Structure formats: C-alpha cells, structure tokens
Simulated scan of single mutants.
Amino acid sequence: MIILLLILSVLAGVFLGKYFGNKKAFAKNLLILSAGFLITICLNEVFPKVYDSGNHHIGIWVIAGVLLQMLLENLTKGFEHGHFHHHSEGKGILPLALMIGMFIHAFLEGIPLANEEHVLSPYLTGILFHNLPISFILGAFLVYRGKFSPASWLIISVFALASPLGLLLGKYFNPEWEVYFLALVGGIFLHISSVIIFEGSKNHNVDWKKVGLVILGILMAMVAHLFHQH
C-alpha cells in the first residue's frame, strides 16, 4: 500500500503538471505549501525520533543530509524548489545529471520507510506531499505538444519507482541503520523547505500570501501529526 501511494503521488503531480504546467503561480504556491508541511514534519516527527535514538553523534548525519542536498543541487539545479525553465525545444527530455540527482534524492527518502507499519504516517505524508510539487514541475517540463513521449514516460517511471526501490532495499539493511538514514533525509528536507520558505521576496517586503501558505502547510502537518497520535 505504501509503495502504491508513493507511485500515485508522483503520477498525480505529473498529470497536474501536464494540464496546469503553464500556471507558474500554482506551482509556486504548491511548493510553498509543501515546504510549510515538510519543515513541520521534520521538526515535529523526524528530528524528535532521530535525537531520541540516544546517539550523541547523530547530528552529524543531519548536517550530512544538508550538505548532500547542496551537492545534489549541482545536478538538479534547484529543480526541487521550483527553479526550472521549460524549453519546448527540449522535446520532453531531461538532462541526465538532473535525472540522477532526482533519483538519488527520491531513493534516499524511501529507505526509512522500509520498516514503516503505519499507512499515512507523518513521515510518509511528508514525502507524498513533497512529491506533488516536484512531480508537477516534472510533468510540466516533460510534456511536449500536449503529450508525453515514450522517453518522458521512461523518466516518469524511473522517478516514480525511486522511493519504492529505496524502501525495498532498506528491508535488507540492519534496522539499527534506519535512524541514520532518517537523519540524512531530515537534513535534506530541512534544506529544501528552508530554501523555499526563506527565499528572498522582491525588495525584501513581507509576502503575506507566502506567509499564509506556509502557515496553512504547518496547520495541515499538525493535523496529520494529531491524526497519527490517535
């Protein structure tokens, strides 16, 4: 069921991108909403679990996640937080480096789900919500003349299966390693959500719409947290 949800979240975002990809404001708002959701999941769920492990050096893994995401962005060029250019002459083909960066990112997210017993746990909902805007941008980028080419479908399939592959591989790891991967992904999420939330507004004025979307994302994450507790 978790694998199915991971795949469906990517496909849902891709098809939203196909039909609404020209609405850049929609993509931006979805990214900001997901950032508020994601940073709340990090601070409310991921980090308490990570630091409750009793490993006094676990913070190094969180920092490693932040640094890893910075390195991955050399490949993805900020694709994860909406920095992309839709060139029609690209005919729905993504650069190989970008594909590799996105695959690594999604693959690592799936590993901590290997021993997850609860469908729609806060961590999983964070990934599902995070998948939507990224997949939206992916769908908008890959659509060419109103449809996806066979190459586009291959790229979508690879991305959709990355987290499930991480989940399946994680089942062969020592369960004690889970907290390290969770810390690593927590650092990745922290970096991505922080960049989206704190990205400078024009003339450094307060963007009240952005603030409202972040608060909405936070409230949605809090509801998911309370729902999971009960």
Results as ranks from 00 to 15, higher is better:
residue 70 M to P: 08
residue 14 V to T: 03
residue 201 S to T: 14
residue 182 L to R: 12
residue 198 F to H: 15
residue 57 H to R: 08
residue 94 L to A: 11
residue 185 V to T: 13
residue 50 V to F: 11
residue 108 L to K: 09
residue 151 A to C: 07
residue 203 N to K: 13
residue 227 F to T: 13
residue 124 L to M: 15
residue 113 L to W: 08
residue 46 V to C: 06
residue 157 S to Q: 03
residue 31 L to M: 07
residue 127 I to G: 03
residue 100 I to T: 05
residue 1 M to L: 10
residue 226 L to D: 13
residue 163 S to V: 01
residue 15 F to Y: 11
residue 177 W to G: 01
residue 171 K to T: 03
residue 105 H to K: 06
residue 214 V to C: 10
residue 79 F to W: 00
residue 85 H to T: 06
residue 226 L to F: 10
residue 161 L to K: 05
residue 224 A to P: 08
residue 106 A to P: 02
residue 92 G to E: 05
residue 87 H to K: 09
residue 155 I to L: 09
residue 49 K to T: 10
residue 129 F to L: 13
residue 158 V to F: 07
residue 133 P to I: 06
residue 3 I to L: 09
residue 128 L to S: 08
residue 227 F to C: 12
residue 172 Y to F: 14
residue 194 S to I: 11
residue 145 R to A: 15
residue 177 W to V: 07
residue 12 A to L: 15
residue 30 L to E: 01
residue 165 L to F: 09
residue 56 H to F: 14
residue 73 E to K: 04
residue 204 H to I: 07
residue 129 F to W: 06
residue 202 K to M: 05
residue 90 G to L: 11
residue 41 I to C: 13
residue 75 L to G: 08
residue 150 P to E: 02
residue 124 L to G: 07
residue 206 V to E: 03
residue 182 L to A: 11
residue 98 L to C: 15
residue 207 D to P: 04
residue 22 N to E: 11
residue 84 F to W: 02
residue 86 H to P: 00
residue 169 L to V: 13
residue 199 E to H: 15
residue 46 V to S: 06
residue 65 G to W: 02
residue 146 G to Y: 10
residue 169 L to R: 01
residue 215 I to F: 14
residue 49 K to G: 12
residue 93 I to Q: 12
residue 219 L to T: 14
residue 179 V to P: 11
residue 185 V to R: 05
residue 55 N to Y: 14
residue 28 K to C: 03
residue 96 L to T: 15
residue 24 K to D: 02
residue 108 L to N: 08
residue 13 G to V: 02
residue 222 M to R: 03
residue 79 F to L: 02
residue 161 L to E: 04
residue 23 K to M: 03
residue 207 D to F: 09
residue 165 L to N: 00
residue 84 F to G: 00
residue 160 A to R: 02
residue 72 L to P: 05
residue 118 H to K: 15
residue 10 V to I: 14
residue 137 I to T: 13
residue 136 F to T: 07
residue 119 V to A: 12
residue 116 E to F: 14
residue 208 W to P: 00
residue 221 A to T: 09
residue 187 G to M: 10
residue 28 K to L: 10
residue 128 L to H: 08
residue 20 F to D: 00
residue 122 P to H: 06
residue 80 E to Y: 03
residue 37 F to H: 09
residue 221 A to N: 04
residue 62 V to M: 10
residue 92 G to Q: 05
residue 157 S to Y: 01
residue 153 W to V: 10
residue 55 N to K: 14
residue 27 A to Y: 00
residue 176 E to Q: 15
residue 184 L to D: 01
residue 2 I to V: 12
residue 159 F to L: 10
residue 168 L to Q: 01
residue 181 F to I: 14
residue 67 L to C: 15
residue 93 I to N: 11
residue 2 I to D: 01
residue 19 Y to L: 03
residue 224 A to H: 09
residue 215 I to N: 07
residue 157 S to R: 04
residue 171 K to I: 00
residue 94 L to I: 12
residue 152 S to I: 04
residue 183 A to M: 04
residue 74 N to R: 12
residue 43 L to P: 07
residue 3 I to K: 02
residue 32 I to A: 02
residue 119 V to P: 04
residue 10 V to F: 06
residue 126 G to S: 06
residue 17 G to I: 01
residue 159 F to C: 02
residue 65 G to Y: 05
residue 201 S to K: 05
residue 106 A to G: 06
residue 9 S to E: 00
